[in-house]
């Protein structure tokens, strides 16, 4: 039933797209018909695959590094009152800066390679992961903490054995959000300056009025993002279901 809905939505979208092209007679370098995009995609599959690999690597590494940094920050904030007092305002302030504005600086510092794109993805997902996990760590059911106190638990063991496991569902939400944001970060990085990746391919195609190739790259990026989200979604939910069933 779920798949049926997805298929139906795709068919309707393609139908609408084709109808707009046929009815308005819009020129193909403005809006190419779906069949042409599919053909272009197939003819350029090696090229598209190569650039997809680059973008996927940037997103994957960005997610990994962002998750590690976010988890470490949330743990530090949860464990230390001093860190909460000092680091949190800095975090909130940096969050007020539009991350997009940092892209040119990152490119300047880290160059045109993958580094600046990974950094961009990390910057964009770091805060959602940190804040989701931190919120979870601070919202431990008070009864669990009472239990730990009467049992004579140390602060660290309470953190490790109770607060962290109780916060894993929140971390899961943070990671799912990150899976949505990470591709945006990588592509913005590619737009600002790069020599490979789907974002680069889109700019290149656009510059040469190859709108059909641009659409092919765009749709590939969409599929990549959806596959990434579904994977992270499935992994986190499957893990949580095994880890703390019934929550």
């Amino acid at each position: 039933m779920r798949y049926l809905g997805g298929i139906l939505a795709t068919v309707i979208a393609l139908g609408l797209w084709q109808a707009i092209v046929s009815l308005t007679g819009v020129r193909r370098f403005i809006l190419p018909p779906p069949a042409l995009v599919a053909e272009t995609w197939f003819d350029n599959r090696a090229l598209i695959f190569e650039h997809t690999l680059v973008t996927a690597t940037e997103i994957g590494l960005g997610l990994l590094v962002g998750a590690v940094l976010g988890i470490a920050t949330a743990l530090t904030l949860a464990a230390s009152d001093f860190a909460r007092l000092t680091v949190r305002p800095i975090l909130v302030f940096t969050q007020a800066l539009p991350v997009f504005a940092l892209a040119p600086i990152l490119t300047l510092w880290l160059g045109f390679g993958m580094g600046s794109k990974i950094a961009m993805a990390v910057l964009i997902i770091y805060f959602p992961i940190t804040s989701a996990f931190f919120d979870g760590l601070m919202r431990t059911p008070p009864g669990y903490l009472d239990l730990a106190q009467t049992m004579g638990a140390s602060k660290w063991r309470t953190l490790w054995r109770i607060r962290v496991p109780a916060a894993l569902p929140s971390l899961g939400s943070g990671l799912r959000l990150a899976a949505v944001y990470a591709p945006i970060g990588a592509v913005i990085g590619e737009w600002v300056g790069s020599s490979s990746g789907l974002g680069y391919l889109m700019l290149l195609a656009n510059g040469r009025a190859k709108t059909d190739l641009m659409f092919a790259a765009l749709l590939t990026l969409g599929v990549l993002s959806i596959v990434l989200y579904l994977t992270v979604n499935w992994l986190t939910l499957a893990y949580l279901k095994r880890h703390s069933p019934g929550v």
Binding site: A148, M151, A153, S154, R161, P165, L168
Partner: peptide
């Protein structure tokens, strides 16, 4: 106040594990 991620036996031995 049972921990949902721990088995019955792990819940029963929680105190010892919290004290190391």
């Amino acid at each position: 106040l049972l921990l949902p991620w721990a088995t019955v036996e792990e819940n029963v031995t929680l105190g010892a594990r919290l004290r190391g």
